[in-house]
Computed example of a mutant assay.
Amino acid sequence: MTREQFYEKFIALLQEVKPYPGEDPRPTSRLWEEGYVDSLALLDIVAFLEDLVGREIDLSGDAITNFYNMRAMYDGYLLDRDGEPAPAGAQDRAQDRDGA
């Protein structure tokens, strides 16, 4: 999935789970601080990401920083180790292979 496709799908999800007035968020918009995301919307966002990557998202440690903005989510969960868009489940398979 390209970055633009992700942004488009993510914005559609936000409009469904937490409608907001005004402009759509930009890739670097601070989603929490600007009111686009709250704790309830986060549950839907995690499920959305898990569907896209084909695995459970680990929310321990500093994983919450991946939810700061759309760019961080895409970079943290949808890119492979070479910085290319990863097919669903590819990150999980790479971690299994590398023992990470």
Rank of each mutant, 00 (worst) to 15 (best):
M1V: 13
M1F: 13
T2E: 11
R3N: 06
E4S: 15
E4T: 12
Q5L: 14
F6H: 06
F6N: 01
F6M: 09
F6C: 08
E8I: 07
K9N: 15
K9M: 15
F10N: 05
I11D: 05
I11W: 01
I11V: 08
I11S: 00
A12C: 05
A12K: 14
L13C: 10
Q15L: 14
E16M: 07
E16R: 07
E16H: 05
E16I: 05
V17P: 02
V17I: 14
K18D: 04
Y20Q: 02
P21K: 14
P21V: 06
G22K: 07
G22T: 03
E23P: 02
D24T: 03
P25N: 10
P25F: 07
P27S: 08
P27T: 06
P27G: 09
P27R: 07
T28K: 14
T28Q: 15
S29W: 09
R30A: 15
R30Y: 12
L31Q: 01
L31G: 05
L31H: 02
W32P: 00
E33S: 10
G35E: 09
D38K: 00
S39M: 11
S39L: 09
A41D: 11
A41C: 13
A41K: 01
L42W: 08
L42G: 10
L42R: 02
L43C: 14
L43Y: 14
L43A: 13
I45F: 08
V46E: 00
V46A: 04
L49H: 03
L52W: 06
V53L: 02
G54Y: 05
G54W: 03
R55G: 00
E56I: 04
I57W: 03
I57L: 11
D58M: 10
D58L: 06
S60H: 07
A63L: 12
N66S: 01
F67Y: 11
F67V: 05
R71P: 03
A72Q: 01
M73C: 11
Y74N: 11
D75P: 03
Y77C: 10
Y77Q: 11
L79C: 05
L79M: 07
L79P: 01
D80S: 07
D80Q: 06
D80A: 09
R81Q: 15
R81I: 14
D82E: 10
D82T: 00
G83E: 15
G83F: 08
P85S: 12
A86D: 03
P87Q: 13
P87C: 12
P87Y: 12
A88G: 11
G89A: 06
G89D: 04
A90I: 04
A90P: 00
Q91R: 08
Q91I: 01
Q91N: 15
D92K: 02
A94W: 14
Q95G: 11
Q95P: 09
R97D: 01
D98W: 11
G99S: 12
A100G: 12
A100R: 08
